[in-house]
Nucleic acid binder design. Structure first.
Length: 213
DNA sequence: ATGACGATTTACT
DNA sequence: GTAAATCGTCATA
């Protein structure tokens, strides 16, 4: 079992966001079941200058503290009174930059994920492309909550990233704007989201950007 | 102490 | 497309 090293994480957020595409997020659930998914969509949050980042103006609070940690630290936060989202910290110590994991293609532990994801009203299980196609969905499916913030993913025994076998072809990577960002001035239109072209597991696809890619 | 809001998801019209 | 759900966090006082 090989995993991403400190060195791999210790780069700027946009670069890490693109390099994570195709890598595998692994989570060993509390019951011991191994859950895993291929990372297919990421966003970069670029620190004190980035008006959309929790670390804008170097805001350092109990919640955002993990963002100031070393590359490879997890940053999980709670929002809307019911959802969790997971980031992987990039850069160097005290540089509050991170990559939001927005979607996975589930590869291991699908049964467990279907259990973790709330069943539909009619009782039918969610289809596979609805298990991890969003930042809060993937946390729910993988059993990741705020208790898992601030972990060192280079050594933790229940949460880590395994490197991709090969880099995706550049023309298979779609670049577009971040989702759910509307009060962030100039940063609203920054091209800081990346995803694998054509993947049905992505949260929000951008047909125009896919044509360009 | 208080109020406004959120890096979302789901169900419903 | 629109709206509700639901509460921790953060800024202001």
């Amino acid at each position: 079992m090989t995993r991403l090293s400190r060195r791999s994480y210790s780069i700027d957020a946009p670069t890490l966001a693109q390099r994570l595409l195709g890598a595998t997020l692994v989570r060993v659930a509390d019951n011991g079941v191994r859950l895993a998914g291929r990372i297919v969509e990421t966003e970069a949050y670029c620190g004190p200058e980035d008006q959309a980042a929790h670390s804008y103006k170097a805001r350092r609070t109990e919640r955002t503290e993990p963002m100031f940690g070393v590359g490879g630290t997890s940053y999980v936060y709670f929002t809307y009174g019911m959802h969790h989202c997971m980031n992987i910290v990039a850069g160097r110590l005290d540089e509050p930059v991170a990559v939001l994991l927005r979607a996975l293609e589930p590869t291991e532990g699908l049964e467990e994920m279907r259990t973790n994801r709330r069943p539909r009203r009619d009782g039918q299980p969610k289809p596979d492309d609805d298990l991890c196609s969003g930042p809060a969905k993937l946390c729910q499916a993988m059993g990741i909550d705020r208790l898992m913030t601030g972990l060192d993913m280079t050594t933790h025994d229940r949460l880590w990233v395994e490197p991709r076998a090969r880099a995706p072809r550049p023309d298979q990577i779609v670049t577009t704007t971040r989702v759910g960002i509307d009060n962030a001035g100039d940063w609203v239109d920054a091209p800081l989201r990346w995803y694998l072209r054509g993947s049905p597991h992505v949260s929000v696809r951008d047909p125009e950007a896919e044509r360009r890619a």
